[in-house]
Design a protein around this nucleic acid. Structure first.
Length: 533
DNA sequence: ACTCAATGGTGCC
DNA sequence: TGGCACCCCTTGAG
């Protein structure tokens, strides 16, 4: 039961507010507030006076409430002014803008995403139930060691090597690509003829003017393969720019850049990264590709087949890294097991003619001397560039004619394309080296360029590449921000940095010049191609 | 012989 | 829509 005292308290607390309302409308007063309302009420309680006694007090309480309300409004106004003076909205907008610039939305053109299907989990039955092969539950301790950890984290998706022998292009289409799109691409076949390549006669100065005109537009960025690119090439024909790239899981994407629609056709001729692709100039309807899956295939656009040219047993786990041509129909293939293989494209079967062991460790690239085609250099991962003579190679115990050492692993070593008078080396010791190989028996360092080649684990390493028709220009990716593709002169100076705030916002690890048209194709690590032309 | 961390872009949630 | 998990045969330091 509430006491009379407490009832009174209630009354005095409630009634004034009623009054205050009416007074606010009729005659608001402007007396200074002397005591806080709460304090006043507490005093009321303490004094325990009757209602009639506190009549005047109630009036002053009304005033106080009005004033308090006014002060509240004033505070609200001042606060609002203060916050607007901080320009938070402006700062927010700026932040959003800089974020957009830092992480712009990638181009949505090109290859469509594969429909998500429930992954087939081969091991869900017993392993994920923490049971051994007999179905007996494993003790929890058994899961702690590293081997088990790795086992549980093996990729769920299987990437099987395509069956040996010819592979129909239409049967190896990536799931979202239609046969119609393949047929449209094949219409390019009749325009593919190319003349033999001559040394580019445009002077260095004029060539740098041509470079100044290179631009990239919305239509010149396109997703061509679903995942990280490991190789890129451009068809030598002049009518259309046909760019091609190979990705991590053996997908090969062709993109007709000159077509008005997104003309992308993607095939799956391999099951592991495609490390080198090329349209040989003499037979430009062919598309050669080698892969970590231990096969080298030859796509024939007339036959619409990927022929198997050279392969090693899948279980041998030999990775093919790149190839070059000692003769038009012969390929020299570099492998990760310290061997190079000499392969004739026309012979039946998929065996190499010869396999030469030239080292114990893995190598990256091989590059044939363009004039004296029995010479080649290779780039070992242990930092050595070695010069070899194909005529003198034995099955094993080979000794290089010359060795150029580097402190770190190498990404590539390429002879200059016309005379072979220079060798361009990309090294993990953060340099691009140009060697003078005019005198093949005495190769010397000509120029060393500092260049950040630390692309890390997720990005394909840089491989500085010559212009196919020039000996004074090469191209390389860059880690610089804003993102850029760099064109260097053989004096070691940057001729041009190809940039675009709008259309180039990622690292293009691999880049190629078109041999005769002014066009550059750059491949980033998510399967997108960028064409400056 | 081993472990660990670094690296950038994306596409999913 | 922003945030962050994921990628994973690579290198170099410890």
């Amino acid at each position: 039961m509430p006491s009379t005292r407490s009832k009174r308290k209630l009354k005095s607390a409630v009634e004034p507010s009623k009054k205050a309302k009416t007074q606010t409308v009729t005659s608001p007063r402007k007396t200074a507030l002397k005591e806080p309302v709460l304090e006043k009420m507490v005093t009321d309680n303490q004094s325990d006076k009757s209602c009639s006694d506190s009549e005047s007090e109630l009036e002053s309480l009304d005033e106080e409430i009005i004033l308090c309300e006014e002060r509240r409004r004033m505070n609200l106004k001042l606060n609002a002014e203060f916050f607007s003076s901080l320009q938070i909205e402006q700062a927010k907008a700026n932040l959003q803008e800089s974020k957009r610039q830092k992480h712009p939305k990638p181009s949505q053109r090109g290859l469509k995403r594969e429909k998500l299907v429930e992954p087939i989990n081969r091991r869900s039955s017993l392993r994920l139930q923490k049971k051994d092969p007999e179905g007996i539950p494993l003790p929890p301790e058994a899961l702690i060691n590293r081997a088990d950890y790795l086992f549980y984290h093996e990729p769920v998706v299987e990437h099987e090597r395509p069956p040996s022998g010819p592979l129909q292009m239409t049967e190896s289409l990536y799931s979202t690509v239609t046969v119609e799109e393949h047929k449209v691409l094949m219409e390019l076949r009749d325009k593919m003829a190319v003349k033999p390549l001559k040394s580019n006669t445009i002077s260095f100065t004029n060539f740098s003017k041509v470079l100044d005109k290179l631009v990239i537009t919305e239509n010149q960025v396109c997703k061509v393969v679903p995942e990280r690119t490991f190789s890129v090439a451009v068809h030598p024909m002049e009518d259309s720019i046909l760019a091609v790239t190979g990705d991590k899981w053996g997908r090969l994407g062709l993109w007709n850049v000159s077509s008005t629609s997104d003309a992308v056709v993607t095939y799956c001729p391999h099951s592991r990264p495609i490390t080198c692709i090329d349209f040989p100039r003499e037979n430009s309807h062919l598309l050669l590709s080698c892969s970590y899956d231990g096969t080298l295939r030859c796509g024939d656009l007339h036959k619409e087949v990927f022929d198997e040219v050279y392969s090693t047993p899948e279980e041998a786990d030999i990775l093919f890294r790149n190839f070059d041509y000692p003769c038009p129909n012969t390929l020299l293939v570099s492998r990760n097991d310290g061997c190079v293989a000499l392969v004739d494209r026309r012979t039946k079967g998929t065996e190499a003619e010869h396999t030469y062991r030239i080292g114990q460790k893995s190598m990256r690239t091989v590059s044939i001397h363009p004039l004296e085609r029995h010479y080649f250099v290779n780039a070992f991962v242990d930092g050595r560039v070695c010069l070899w003579d194909l005529r003198n190679l034995k099955e094993k115990n080979n000794k290089p004619l010359q060795t150029l050492t580097h402190g770190r692993s190498l990404n590539s070593a390429y002879f200059s394309p016309i005379t072979g008078k220079c060798i361009l080396v990309t090294s993990m010791e953060d340099v691009l080296n140009i060697y003078d190989s005019c005198n093949i028996s005495e190769i010397s360092l000509k120029k060393s360029i500092r260049h950040n080649n630390h692309t890390g684990r997720w990005l394909t390493g840089f491989r500085a590449a010559w212009h196919p028709a020039r000996e004074d220009v090469f191209i390389v990716g860059s880690m610089n921000r804003p993102r850029e593709i760099q064109v260097y002169g053989d004096d070691g100076h940057i001729l041009r940095s190809l940039r675009s705030e709008e259309y180039l916002n990622s690292v293009c690890s691999l880049n190629v010049f078109h041999p005769t048209r002014s066009a550059v194709v750059g491949a980033n690590s998510s399967g997108r191609l960028h064409v400056f032309m």
